[in-house]
Computed example of a mutant assay.
Amino acid sequence: MSKTTRATQALERLGVKFTVHAYNYDPDASSIGLQAAQALDVPPQRVLKTLMAEADGKPVCAMVPSDCEVSMKKLAAAFGAKTAKMMRPADAERLTGYHVGGISPFGQKKRVPVAIEEAALGHASVFLNGGQRGLQVELDPNDALKAAGAIARSLVA
């Protein structure tokens, strides 16, 4: 497995310090984020899943702890929208250039507004998808916020 992806290249270009962690990706896992946390032996609240959604029909990205569900109401409010819904997987793949299970908030083909769960900023480091299945990057959550050009909001139900 290559440890160089568009996501890692984007972080390097921005001068962000990060560590790459590879793990055995289970395509049959009921929760990709929880499976990653278990494989890496880290608490699930430190492994953030990258979710692609639509707020008032416009694409957005959310980073939330893998053991939480995103609140569509809070997600919509974070982007000043009335409604939000999850994006269809095929649309998410086309928009980001990544495969579902490997979508990173960094280095997406098209830049979209991004929000991170504000509680994640309390950790010394968090894990986010590194741009391919079975690859996570560990970094300071404040660096993730800046690198993704994100806003910090309460996003979970």
Rank of each mutant, 00 (worst) to 15 (best):
D143K: 11
T8R: 06
V112Q: 03
V126S: 04
L155E: 10
A10Y: 10
P65L: 10
A152N: 06
R153P: 05
L75C: 12
A144H: 01
Y25G: 01
D28W: 07
A115S: 12
L95I: 09
R133P: 01
F79R: 12
E138Q: 11
A152R: 09
P59T: 10
E138Y: 01
A150Y: 08
T19F: 00
V20Y: 01
A115F: 05
S104R: 05
R88G: 11
G15I: 10
D140H: 06
G122L: 08
K85R: 15
T96D: 04
D143S: 14
Y23N: 02
E12N: 13
F127C: 00
V20G: 00
L145V: 10
P105C: 09
K74G: 13
M1A: 13
F127W: 08
G57M: 11
R46E: 11
A119Y: 05
R6S: 14
A62W: 05
E69G: 08
L95Y: 07
M72R: 14
K85L: 09
G33C: 09
G57A: 11
V137P: 00
L135G: 00
A36S: 08
Y23K: 01
M72L: 15
P113W: 13
F106G: 05
G15P: 07
V20A: 06
A55Q: 08
I103W: 01
A120V: 09
R153E: 15
F18Y: 14
A90P: 01
A36C: 03
A62N: 05
R88Y: 09
G149R: 04
V42C: 04
K82P: 00
T50V: 03
V126I: 15
M63H: 05
K146D: 07
G33P: 00
V156E: 12
I116S: 05
K3A: 07
G107N: 10
K85M: 12
K73C: 06
K3F: 02
N142F: 06
A36P: 01
A90L: 08
T19R: 08
P141Q: 10
K110Q: 15
L75H: 10
A76E: 05
P65M: 11
N142I: 01
A115E: 08
H123T: 05
M1Y: 04
G122H: 07
G15K: 10
L135R: 00
Q136A: 04
P44K: 09
K146I: 11
L48F: 02
L135N: 00
G131H: 03
I103E: 02
L11I: 09
I151G: 12
P43M: 07
R111S: 15
V126T: 05
S66Y: 01
L14D: 06
C61Y: 04
S154G: 15
L34T: 05
N129Q: 03
V60C: 08
G15S: 07
A29W: 03
G134K: 02
G97Y: 10
L95W: 09
R13L: 14
L135V: 06
D26C: 01
I103M: 02
G102P: 08
S31C: 07
I116Y: 02
P59E: 08
P44T: 06
Y23R: 03
Y25D: 00
M52A: 11
A120T: 11
S31G: 10
H123S: 13
E54P: 03
R133H: 02
I32K: 06
E138S: 05
G122C: 10
V60I: 14
A37C: 02
A152I: 12
S66R: 02
